[in-house]
Design a protein around this nucleic acid. Sequence first.
DNA 1: ATGGTTTTTACTGCGTC
DNA 2: GACGCGGTAAAAACCAT
Length: 324
Amino acid sequence: MTDTRTRRHANEQENDRERERGEGEAVVCPECGGGLVADAEHGETVCSECGLVVEENEIDPGPEWRAFDASEKDEKSRVGAPTTNMMHDKGLSTNIGWQDKDAYGNSLSSRQREKMQRLRTWNERFRTRDSKERNLKQALGEIDRMASALGLPENVRETASVIYRRALDENLLPGRSIEGVATSALYAAARQAGTPRSLDEIAAVSRVEKDEIARTYRYVVRELSLEIQPADPESYVPRFVSDLDLPDEVERRARELLDTAKRQGVHSGKSPVGLAAAAVYAASLLANEKVTQSAVSEVANISEVTIRNRYHELLEAEEEFAPP
DNA sequence: ATGGTTTTTACTGCGTC
DNA sequence: GACGCGGTAAAAACCAT
């Protein structure tokens, strides 16, 4: 009986590779497989390895050019704040200022003031009237809330916003809760960005049950054909190490252990979190740092038994690979 | 639904401080 | 005696089919 999950992961990854060529969401260069970097200054997406420009002519949301004094700034800067996916209308809608001043800064007559107040009210109503927009407003709020609770950086929130927007556009919402889809989007975004949070951690800050998140997540991933690799155990290591107040050396060794384990294929089918936790524990043994299994299991939310099983395997793999 | 795998739970024995 | 660690068996959770 060869490990069926080993095969599964291998296949999954091949499929992902395949898909990346087709769709615009690629995070990997179609030429050389290197990582893509956004170059906002030129509005391009460029491969870090071979320099291939993948996408051009995207709108550069940044300021036009350096300004050396105030007048130059007025001349060269574009109007308004940079657009962002984190606002439900990308920050592009009209807002009516709250100051009762006209374009020249003169104050308005009381009649005019009343008029402006009515305009403000109606503008606000129109801006959020459409159900999709309302929907987005709420979902993005949720995403933001959960992301801060989990300490996820801004780019993850942005990605989550994009995913949610797509789900909305493709009419994936009917029959599913806004919160569920929002949570799934965040879960997916965190994994894509290489700062994964486990399903448990996500569920802890979401208003939705774990089962539903998992179900919705699978659905969303399938419908949007998002390419998401199984989480890399190494991406959990830094967080565990710092949660346990361990030195950098432990982190380094943990990475080494995971690397050789990967090379030997020991890792497939096992939970990445467990692997990471075991690596941290094994590494701290090697570095003569005293940490208990229960401490590691606590921060990783993994049972001690799993840590034991995994770290034996890790050490074995290490010995086979490099027997000094 | 099913079957194969992994993870968890619960319990036990051993050595050390 | 409490604690850290190791092992085991059975239950639960997970996932592809």
